[in-house]
């Protein structure tokens, strides 16, 4: 006891990924869907950092840094798109955004 095995960190990461996955697939609210994506990015970060520590290489931390930056950028544009969507459709329910089909 004392030190936590690598697998547990990774499992935590994959658990977060799975939850984000689920949020993305199950929830109808576009914002919550997007939050799921954010969670998945965090899962990736968790994995990076776990391995970074396991292998004692810091490039994993640099990677996490980039992931956070990307997440921020995505959030900016993504939220802007949702604003535009609500302006047009007055809804954030992904089920209702389906005029383009077949």
């Amino acid at each position: 006891m004392g030190s936590v095995p690598l697998a547990h960190y990774l499992a935590l990461g994959s658990a977060l990924f799975a939850v984000g996955f689920a949020a993305l697939l199950v929830r109808r609210n576009a914002l919550v869907v997007f939050m799921g994506v954010e969670l998945m990015l965090n899962a990736a970060n968790m994995t990076f950092l776990a391995f970074s520590r396991a292998h004692q290489t810091m490039s994993g931390q640099a990677a996490a840094f980039f992931v956070i930056a990307v997440a921020a950028a995505e959030a900016a544009v993504g939220l802007a798109i949702m604003i535009a969507l609500v302006r047009n459709r007055n809804t954030l329910n992904v089920d209702e955004v389906d005029t383009l089909k077949y």
């Binding site: 095995p5 690598l6 697998a7 499992a11 994959s14 658990a15 799975a18 939850v19």
Partner: peptide, 21 residues
Amino acid sequence: ALAFWMISFMVFSDLPDQTMP
């Protein structure tokens, strides 16, 4: 999502070196 998580267990438990330095 659940399947993924299960599979990930399989993968991670397969790692040769589990101890953190």
